[in-house]
Amino acid sequence: MLDKNGIAKRIAQEIRDGYYVNLGIGIPTLVANYIPEYIEVVLQSENGLLGMGPFPLEGMEDPDLINAGKQTITMLPGSAVFDSAMSFGMIRAQKVDLTILGAMEISEYGDIANWKIPGKLVKGMGGAMDLVASAKNIIVAMQQVNKAGESKLLPRCTLPLTGVRCIRKVVTELAVFEIDIDHGGFHLLERAPGVSITQIRNATAGRLFVPDHVPEMQL
């Protein structure tokens, strides 16, 4: 079973040289730590920056330079700054090659819920609805079961939706899945080191398709 860093490490393997990538808050942010040095990617921050670099050294924080999580950041050589409309314009126009975000629930048709829990205080969707509705290549990073042990990979989402039929790939602490958004179903692609098919089956409430051979992740 993977920890958060393990999930991030596996997702980093999906990144190709030359990609423009948008990383969400949480596990997705950790992905940046595992991008191999020989691969060049440009990170997009939806508050208006391409070329996001690491956090600044102490004393070098610039209040005018933050990421979408409002954290102080730096810019790498070749960066560009733009306004929020252009930022979502490049997302909507599918200029961003890969979007990585978290989720509370995913359905077997690729619906995603990640912004609102009824009865709990709503903080807002931020840019999540724009991202899932527009991005062509999305990977969801999430824990497959909640604290009560219930699966978050469902036949249908129970929480208010963020987007419909938009998620095709999910990486969890147990496995990598591809979703068939036309016919429905989680297709098991890989399992985490030491994780059995039974464990994955027990943690998947939606329809699960298991091929004859399921390779173990190479991390």
């Binding site: 939806e46 306004d83 929020s84 409309a85 930022s87 979502f88 314009g89 997302i91 909507r92 619906d111 969707m125 931020g126 840019g127 999540a128 609805m129 724009d130 509705a133 527009s134 939706l161 987007g163 419909v164 039929r165």
Partner: peptide, 26 residues
Amino acid sequence: PQGTLATRCLAAGYGMPAIFTPAGVG
């Protein structure tokens, strides 16, 4: 949605009454 918020500002500044966005469909 943040992109909708931004683009509704943009539309006002560009003299356009409305925009079409996939954000929030469904």
